[in-house]
């Protein structure tokens, strides 16, 4: 009779869900990629900002720049989604609020990554033309 068992009794002996390791590895591999990507990104931002609108489009017309900045944004949102997930899980105790925030986190990260990728590639495929 499952209803008479304590929550601890339910969980005892089952072991871990064996899903945590995917999060752990994903966070570290994306962190490793972002180490290089963000150094390049911060350095590039200085020259891109100096070039104004025309300079930014010209910069993005380079396939290397377009690939790296898209990779940076997508990897960044992936890493940020994993990190924010842990923050929500740690501090939000109420189950409904927590679930809503976790779903919202996924939607914002996926939406931000997709929007940025489409915008960057639109400009990149336009060859920097005005």
């Amino acid at each position: 009779m499952a209803g008479y068992r304590t929550p601890l009794g339910h969980a005892r002996g089952l072991g871990s869900a064996k899903h945590g390791v995917g999060h752990f590895i994903g966070q570290r591999v994306s962190a490793f990629a972002l180490l290089g990507l963000t150094i390049w990104g911060a350095w590039s931002a200085v020259s891109v900002v100096a070039g104004g609108y025309v300079g930014a489009r010209f910069w993005l017309a380079s396939p290397i720049n377009a690939a790296l900045i898209t990779l940076l944004v997508v990897t960044g949102f992936y890493h940020a989604r994993l990190g924010m997930q842990v923050v929500v899980e740690d501090y939000i105790e109420r189950k409904f609020t927590r679930t809503v925030l976790l779903i919202l986190n996924t939607f914002v990260a996926a939406g931000g990554a997709m929007l940025a990728a489409v915008c960057l590639l639109k400009v990149a495929f336009g060859g920097g033309a005005l």
Binding site: M84, A116, C119, L120
Partner: peptide, 27 residues
């Protein structure tokens, strides 16, 4: 800092949207 960088990424996404939207939006 991680939470702040979430905001930073949204600023970059906004920059990409502005760049794709034309010179007025970018300015």
């Amino acid at each position: 800092a991680g939470v702040a960088l979430y905001l930073g990424l949204l600023i970059v996404a906004g920059w990409a949207l502005a760049l794709a939207s034309g010179p007025d939006a970018y300015g």
